[in-house]
Simulated assay, not measured.
Amino acid sequence: MPDSLNAFNARSPAEAEEELLACCASRAFAGKVAALRPYRDLDGLVAAAGAAVRELSWAEVLEALRAHPRIGERAGGDDRQASWSRQEQSGLDDGVDDEVRAALLEGNRAYEERFGHVYLVCATGLSGAELLGRLRERLGNDEEREREVVRGELAAITRLRLGKLVKEGR
């Protein structure tokens, strides 16, 4: 077991929850995953986190979504979550033309109007054009299907961030 996972397992419940909130900003998620410690390995932590995301009520998912900036907007602050968000959206930093940026802005507005929350996508490794294509595709979803997609995207982002958390091992 990596020393960083040992350190995470040894934290107080409040400290562990605070670290987990950088991965998924739902208090219910953080409480559940922290309570299930100790974890033998990253795979066990990721599995528990995935189950916890799937079990969130929709109100708890919305709580987590409020911590995510719109696609194309830079997260402010210097905390872990903001730093990770900027890394995840780095595909928008270079080579994205004004047309794609404007379409993302308009798409974000249309998405929020249709679904009532930020468009969430695991942006790591995706270009602006790919993010825009996914946004446009998802605008065609009904509410039930979109909620399933959002949960999947939230789980994917959480999985990536847990890997970073364990790797950083503060």
Results as ranks from 00 to 15, higher is better:
R27F: 12
F29Q: 02
K32V: 04
A34L: 03
A35V: 03
L36W: 13
R37H: 00
R40M: 01
G44E: 02
L45R: 00
V46F: 02
A47I: 05
A48M: 01
A49T: 00
A49N: 02
A51E: 03
A52Q: 00
V53Y: 02
R54N: 08
E55N: 13
L56H: 05
S57H: 05
W58A: 03
E60T: 03
V61Q: 13
L62G: 05
L62M: 13
A64R: 11
A64T: 09
H68F: 04
H68S: 10
P69C: 12
G72E: 02
G77M: 03
G77R: 02
D78R: 15
D78G: 05
A82C: 11
S83T: 12
S83C: 10
W84C: 01
R86S: 02
R86M: 04
E88R: 11
Q89I: 08
S90P: 06
S90T: 09
L92T: 07
D93K: 10
D94W: 14
D94L: 14
V96N: 04
D98W: 13
D98Q: 13
D98F: 13
E99V: 14
R101M: 12
A102G: 08
A103D: 06
A103V: 10
A103T: 07
L104A: 03
L105R: 12
E106W: 00
N108Q: 08
N108E: 06
R109Y: 11
A110I: 05
A110Y: 12
Y111K: 10
E113Y: 12
R114Y: 15
R114V: 07
F115C: 09
Y119Q: 01
L120E: 08
V121C: 12
G125Y: 14
L126M: 15
S127E: 14
A129I: 10
E130W: 00
L132G: 08
E137L: 15
E137W: 15
L139S: 04
L139H: 07
E143G: 10
E144Q: 14
R145C: 06
R147H: 05
R147M: 11
E148Q: 14
E148D: 10
E148S: 11
R151T: 08
E153W: 13
L154F: 10
L154T: 07
A155K: 12
I157M: 12
T158I: 13
L160M: 13
R161Y: 15
L162D: 03
L162W: 05
K164S: 10
V166T: 04
V166L: 14
V166G: 05
G169D: 03
